[in-house]
Amino acid sequence: MSLRLLILGLVFAFLYGPILWIVVFSFNEGRLVTLWSGFSTRWYGELLRNQRLMDAAGLSLVIAAISATLATILGSLSGFALARLGRFRGRLLFAGALGAVLTLPEVILGLAQLLAFVALDDLPGWPGRGAATIVAAHATLGMAYVALVVQARLSDFDRSLEEAALDLGATPATVFLTVTLPLILPALGGGWLIAFMLSLDDVVLASFVSGPGATTLPMVVFSSARLGLNPQINALATLMVGIGALAVLSAVWLLGRRQELSR
């Protein structure tokens, strides 16, 4: 019994120890990130006054929200196609293309997208590399995840519910709005949150496809970590851990609700 507790403790220490370290030291009085010198929230205050970090955080949130929304729309359509259209021509290719986004190393994906965006640079009216290209890159990654979630939800969807609605006089569009959509909404919400978090913590794709004007928060953190550790980053990391945990818990709750609903 005590051995099991010990192993459990070690596993959790291994998983969360470093994160806990950051959280604890974000409240450190001193400048050193390894030596405890008393409790303080001064780094949170400095963080809020750091315009560069705040701008990056704002940009990251905007990019995450827009790309997650695009990913949810495109991913839902893909999920519907895979789950509902039967064995259409090119279905395997389509499913494989979506799966490739999930399995390809992000470095390759980022490089490929960079090359594509460079090629598009000559196009008249093309906005150039920056926030827009990061949104496009993140939406691509996110839609593959959303498609997976939506397809899974639809494959165990009881089709007789939609038939019952048709039978009761609802046109196909009304059936979708009053029956299908409300029942898969938790899956869409969960998918949106996953896409949002993927975008918020991505540094690889953003580094590849961004231009000089757009720097997201993870990019700032990554570059400042190389220049030396700064307690402000600890405070920032603590906030991001908080947001991330909240998003994951919400996603789990949303995706878990379907069991309750489909009973």
């Binding site: 519910l161 019952a164 039978d167 006089g169 046109t171």
Partner: peptide, 20 residues
């Protein structure tokens, strides 16, 4: 004539009540 325009209604084996 689509199902939503037929004066016919069906009680499903699984009942198919809308859970929400």
């Amino acid at each position: 004539i689509p199902p939503y325009e037929r004066p016919v209604n069906l009680v499903f084996q699984s009942y198919a009540l809308f859970p929400h």
